[in-house]
């Protein structure tokens, strides 16, 4: 038996909107630790890793580890029917072939339940090694989204370079080139507007903007995003989910042949 009650149901709505276009089908894994997902996009270029820790739920019951295969587009459709202030409960029976999403309005005057069929998904779980990243950039998530969107109107790829001068995002296309440099800025009044650059070694990597733009659909989840870079490693774009966990996107770099 699985029963997860999330008072801030909008978090789950936002998570689904962030990943539904990147990943078609995925297994949600439930254990004592929390509700998690790891899935690759169909071309195996990007990987999504989600963790919602059990402590973040108002009620968390998971009698035994359970893996539930879901079509993320269909799950997103159902969660879209929840109000932004609704409490969302996810329920499933051990060995059952469906999952129920229950939506309760804040004053309990509307209760809805949506039942969705589960599917068997043969997914490959990858081990993600702990890595010491050469450069970690923390910046406003809306700024990161803006840069990715702007650059994708010029070119298809972005070169992200971190030096002691700052972080540079560059692209080139048929019409010309673009470079955007952000410097460290910790002097802002609000911490969510800060840009913090931690650099061990200068690093420069090339990525497909199409994927970066897809990751930025998670912008409503967090005011800040962390971009971790190491040469020869996938970039990690992380959105923290307040007091519950994270949504991380890993993207394989483009490599010179």
């Amino acid at each position: 038996m699985l029963e997860l009650r999330l008072v801030q149901g909008s978090l789950l709505k936002k998570v689904m909107e962030s990943i539904k276009d990147l990943v078609n089908d995925a297994n949600f894994d439930c254990s004592a630790t929390g509700f998690s997902l790891q899935a690759m996009d169909s071309s195996h270029v990007a990987l999504v890793s989600l963790l919602l820790r059990s402590e973040g739920f108002e009620h968390y019951r998971c009698d035994r580890n359970l893996s539930m295969g879901m079509n993320l587009g269909n799950m997103a459709k159902m969660l879209k029917c929840a109000g932004n202030d609704d409490i969302v409960t996810v329920k499933a029976d051990d060995g059952g072939d469906c999952v129920t999403f229950m939506f309760e309005s804040p004053n309990q005057d509307k209760i809805a339940d949506f039942e969705m069929k589960l599917m068997d998904i043969d997914s490959e779980h990858l081990g993600i090694p702990e890595a010491e990243y050469e450069a970690i950039v923390r910046m406003p998530s809306a700024e990161f989204a803006r840069i990715c969107k702007d650059l994708s109107t010029i070119g298809d790829t972005v070169v992200i370079s971190v030096t002691k001068e700052g972080v540079k995002f560059s692209t080139r296309g048929d019409i010309g080139t673009a470079n955007i440099v952000l410097r460290q800025n910790t002097s802002v009044d609000k911490p969510e507007e800060a840009t913090i650059i931690e650099m061990e070694t200068p690093v420069s990597l090339t990525f497909a903007l199409r994927y970066m733009n897809s990751f930025t659909k998670a912008t409503p989840l967090a005011s800040q995003v962390t971009v971790s870079l190491s040469s020869e490693l996938p970039v990690v774009v992380e959105y923290k989910i307040a007091e519950m966990g994270y949504l991380r996107f890993y993207l394989a770099p483009k490599i010179e042949e």
């Binding site: 195996h44 990858l126 483009k254």
Partner: peptide, 14 residues
């Protein structure tokens, strides 16, 4: 042009 890497060449199957 640089070639797109595959995520599975960086992270091993469990």
């Amino acid at each position: 042009d640089p070639k797109q890497g595959n995520i599975m060449s960086f992270f091993k199957k469990k």
